[in-house]
Simulated scan of single mutants.
Amino acid sequence: MTKIIYFDIDGTLRSEMNKVSPKTKYAIEQCSKKGIICVICTGRNPGSIQEDIKELPMSGVISGGGCFVKYKNKILSEEYFQRDIVKKIIDVCFENKIAVSLESKTNIYMNKPAAEFYKNDFAKKIKHYNLQLQNEIYKDHKICFQDNMQAFEKENPNIHKICVIGQYGFINWLSIEMKEKISVVQMRQWENSWYLELLPKGCNKGKAIHDLNQQLNIDRVDTMCFGDSENDIDMMKESEIAIAMNNNVLKSVASSICESVEDDGIYKELVRRKIIQPEEK
């Protein structure tokens, strides 16, 4: 029997263009009413979780890819990199003019190459919309694409996630060089570059789910999750039922593949599994 469901955000609970759909909201509300614990499980830092997500009846939040765990407003764990690791990665990226972004609990810091890469990539996704709608999407996205590394140097915050974008040779070298001190969450091609996502050693969505389940006395057999990308693999491996959002890349670890977020995949899958009743028309 499903007692707890974990939900990724981007591409799962919401799309950048359509936010959380009415049917997805209905599905979460019905699960909550049935006593099923609903938990966000996202790579986003706590400060960049969107407002429409915060309005959903969730009991807990796993954020930062597993670095932060909160349940019913109680913080259960926080994890950060050692400062010497952050400095080493920053130095080598700046020396080689490589795009790098750093995430703290509340902010995201980027150098100029990273800001330009992310901004251009996001612009491609929303180029078909009018200017007013583009501005609204940027606002809802809650991530500013700007070179703000001076702010990082001034504020000197704790960092829990580092993302690096460059050519394969450098990305592969860095992942090998730091493998004893960090966790590689993603290493994949992105456009004509390669993307490397790093977390503190031992941190990932799967471990956070395992630890929260233990605290709640919930067995793995009673868990379900929904995700859409490679950083959801650990989450899916830790769940008895793992649903991929229209993504064959996750086929090897998913129990089944449902419709996309734009096609209300969460709602349709929960109805098919008879976990919720269809919404009355």
Rank of each mutant, 00 (worst) to 15 (best):
T2F: 15
I4G: 05
I5H: 06
D8W: 00
I9E: 13
I9H: 04
D10N: 12
D10F: 07
G11F: 01
S15T: 15
K19W: 08
P22K: 15
E29G: 09
Q30K: 13
K34M: 14
I36S: 10
C38M: 05
C41S: 12
C41I: 14
T42F: 01
R44L: 04
P46E: 01
I49A: 02
E51S: 12
E55S: 14
P57D: 00
G60Y: 14
V61N: 13
V61M: 11
I62E: 05
S63W: 01
G66R: 04
F68R: 10
Y71S: 04
Y71K: 07
K72E: 13
N73E: 15
K74I: 10
K74F: 05
K74H: 14
K74V: 14
I75E: 15
S77F: 00
Y80A: 00
Q82R: 15
D84V: 10
I85M: 03
K88F: 10
D91V: 02
V92C: 01
E95I: 07
N96H: 13
K97S: 12
A99R: 07
S104G: 11
F117P: 11
K119F: 12
N120Q: 11
F122L: 02
F122T: 02
A123M: 02
K124I: 08
K124G: 13
K125Y: 05
I126M: 04
N130L: 02
L131F: 08
Q132M: 14
Q132Y: 07
Q134E: 12
E136K: 15
I137S: 06
Y138D: 00
K139E: 07
K139D: 07
H141I: 02
K142R: 13
Q146C: 09
Q146P: 03
D147Y: 06
N148M: 03
M149P: 01
E155T: 03
E155H: 07
I159D: 00
H160Q: 04
K161I: 03
I162W: 00
Q167D: 12
G169Q: 15
I171L: 01
I176T: 09
E177G: 02
M178T: 10
K179D: 06
E180Y: 06
K181D: 15
Q186A: 09
R188C: 05
Q189I: 08
Q189F: 05
W190S: 15
W190I: 12
E191L: 14
W194R: 06
Y195G: 03
Y195L: 12
L196H: 09
L199C: 08
P200R: 02
K201D: 04
G202R: 10
C203F: 08
N204I: 10
N204D: 11
K205R: 06
K205D: 01
K207R: 13
A208R: 03
I209F: 00
D211S: 14
L212E: 03
N213P: 09
I218T: 06
D222G: 04
D222Y: 13
F226K: 05
N231P: 04
D234P: 06
D234H: 12
D234V: 01
M236Q: 08
I241F: 03
A242H: 10
A242K: 11
N246C: 12
S252Y: 13
V253N: 13
S255Y: 09
S256M: 12
E259G: 03
E259Y: 11
S260R: 08
D263A: 14
G265L: 09
E269I: 11
R272M: 10
R273D: 02
I275Y: 07
I276Q: 07
I276H: 09
I276K: 13
Q277W: 02
P278I: 06
